[in-house]
């Protein structure tokens, strides 16, 4: 009697952990185990199939010697910087404009934000043809009679990367707007009244009081945008498929083609590890500070 009772008690004490264990197992294997596995592969001579023969850091040396990888990194730098900067500027600007007691704010907000519900593939398809000189903006403007008008960035090796910025900003800036808007709405109204009584001009009010208080929203936006930029794959595939040539290659497309179509799995794995490290460098400190504050 006493023993069965304590067995039941032990069971009850274990239950919470038991319930959590499938998730812990899944995450342990499919996140951390897989990270370890891919990292291991990045030090092997894997080509079409995984191989377990270690070759030291050779894949990394070769990776950073590759022109395509160089292009991919440069593209990521250009894309990432512009994408984050424009999204934040546009998002903040729109949020401030929308925070002026606008009639029909709900409708406008809905319009600004709907692209976020779309797949990047859909966005890619739409912009691919809008930017296509044959049928898109260029053709339309020429059709209106401005024969010399040219807008063929998507076919231009030097400019194609900017078309990805255009489409990506279109998709995400509304979301950044929503984050800043939530931040603005969280600011204490009495403080704003106090600042007005202190004689702050509108400009000073925003620059000195409002925008500094949007730090948490800015930080979150930055982290989300940065990690989306590094992961971005679908949009590039749908919009330019890395082209023309390799002009819009980014690390995500590089990883995919080296691993699955060019049979250079070791290098593909190495590129994936570099991507992970970059994301981790941004996300880990962020998560750490968020979780520490709360507990």
């Amino acid at each position: 009697m006493d023993r069965s009772r304590s067995a039941r008690d032990t069971m009850r004490d274990l239950l919470p952990r038991l319930v959590l264990s499938p998730t812990v197992a899944l995450i342990a294997i499919f996140v951390y185990g897989f990270i370890a596995f891919t990292t291991y592969l990045s030090f092997t001579d894997s080509r079409m199939l995984p191989s377990y023969d270690l070759v030291g850091a050779g894949n990394y040396t070769r990776l950073f010697g590759l022109r395509t990888w160089d292009i991919a990194l440069t593209n990521l730098a250009i894309f990432g910087t512009l994408y984050i900067a424009i999204c934040c500027a546009l998002g903040l600007g729109l949020a401030i404009l929308l925070d002026q007691k606008i009639r029909a704010e709900g409708v406008i907000r809905t319009i600004y934000l709907y692209p976020m519900a779309l797949s990047f593939i859909v966005t890619g398809v739409a912009w691919k043809w809008i930017l296509d000189p044959g049928i898109g903006i260029e053709a339309v403007v020429q059709g209106w009679g401005w024969e010399s008008f040219a807008f063929d960035w998507i076919k231009d090796r030097d400019m194609a990367i900017y078309t990805i910025v255009i489409a990506a900003v279109w998709q995400t800036s509304g979301f950044v707007m929503a984050m800043f808007l939530a931040g603005l709405r969280g600011i204490d109204g009495e403080m704003l009244k106090a600042a007005q009584i202190d004689g702050a001009s509108t400009f000073a009010l925003y620059r000195r009081i409002v925008i500094p208080q949007l730090r948490p929203a800015s930080l979150s936006s930055f982290v989300v945008l940065a990690h989306m930029a590094i992961k971005s794959y679908d949009l590039v595939v749908a919009l330019t498929n890395g082209g023309p040539g390799t002009a819009t290659e980014v690390p995500a497309t590089f990883m995919y083609s080296y691993t699955f179509t060019r049979n250079q799995m070791g290098i593909g794995a190495a590129s994936a590890v570099v991507m992970l490290m970059t994301v981790a460098a941004i996300v880990v400190p962020y998560l750490y500070s968020e979780l520490r504050e709360k507990s």
Binding site: I27, F34, A252, Y256, A269, A272
Partner: peptide, 22 residues
């Protein structure tokens, strides 16, 4: 909390890192 942090990190990994083993 640590466990939650570890689970949370799963939201942010670039999925390229799991493509091969998956």
């Amino acid at each position: 909390t640590v466990l939650f942090g570890l689970i949370l990190f799963g939201c942010f990994i670039p999925f390229q890192i799991v493509l091969i083993p998956m």
